[in-house]
Amino acid sequence: MRQRRAHPAFAVFWWLVLLFLYLPLAVVVLFSFNAINSAATFAGFSLRWYVSLFSNDAVIHAFYNSMVLALSSSVIALVLGTFLGYGLYRHRGRRMGWLIVLIYLPIVMPDVVFGISDMTFFVRLNSMFGILKPGMLTMIISHVTFELPFVALLIYARFVNLDAALFDASKDLYAGPIKRALYFVIPAIKPALVAGFFLAFTLSFDDFVISFFTSGPESATLPIYIWGAIRRGISPDINAIGSLMIAAVLVAALISLIFTLKSRKREGNLN
């Protein structure tokens, strides 16, 4: 394709938008190194907020909760979503309107309504049967529910991009059902499995609203802790937590960039 050329004004606008996008993050990072407790004036470089972070049990507990929640929910969502994606693919010739509606429901439902529905339901079940007391378990259940469709769609997309004859080829080459899964299906969709896990993990780790409504007193995650800290009054260690989270995202972005460029190079001639 011929290279298009944009007017230089576009470049100026581009950098302004980047400034707009990164300024709030930069402010968080900058003030995380502030020597004094102020969000308005920077009074010198200090690591005191990071130091205080690591002695703050509530933060450490919240981080632990976030990790447990994100890990366990994304593993469950990955398993369920992989089967779902595979089922959608193998039966894509059928009319499955009801199933499509079910899959899109968690995606389109407003977070607030999602969280409140689950919260009221769990509270009700708990008062009636004594099960599903709001806490880590209920959060995991809700997180799996909203991660599942994203995983399934990723897996489905990967299957659609595979040559359908590969399934026949694996059967033709003496692979029974279990060997087919182990030596063909799982290796062939591995990129989507990895992407699906990380997507689910990120969605879970980032989520605030649904966690907020389905959590119990002991299961606050990092976003819930930050939310509470902001509501209580601005505290500079939020900047420190925020900076660490931003750093994690930047690392993830870098990894995904390397991964994208590499797989582009690798599959470049295929597509």
Binding site: A165, L166, A188
Partner: peptide, 9 residues
């Protein structure tokens, strides 16, 4: 196979 169906992985 017509498309050869070679395993891409």
């Amino acid at each position: 196979f017509q498309s050869y169906a070679l395993f891409p992985h």
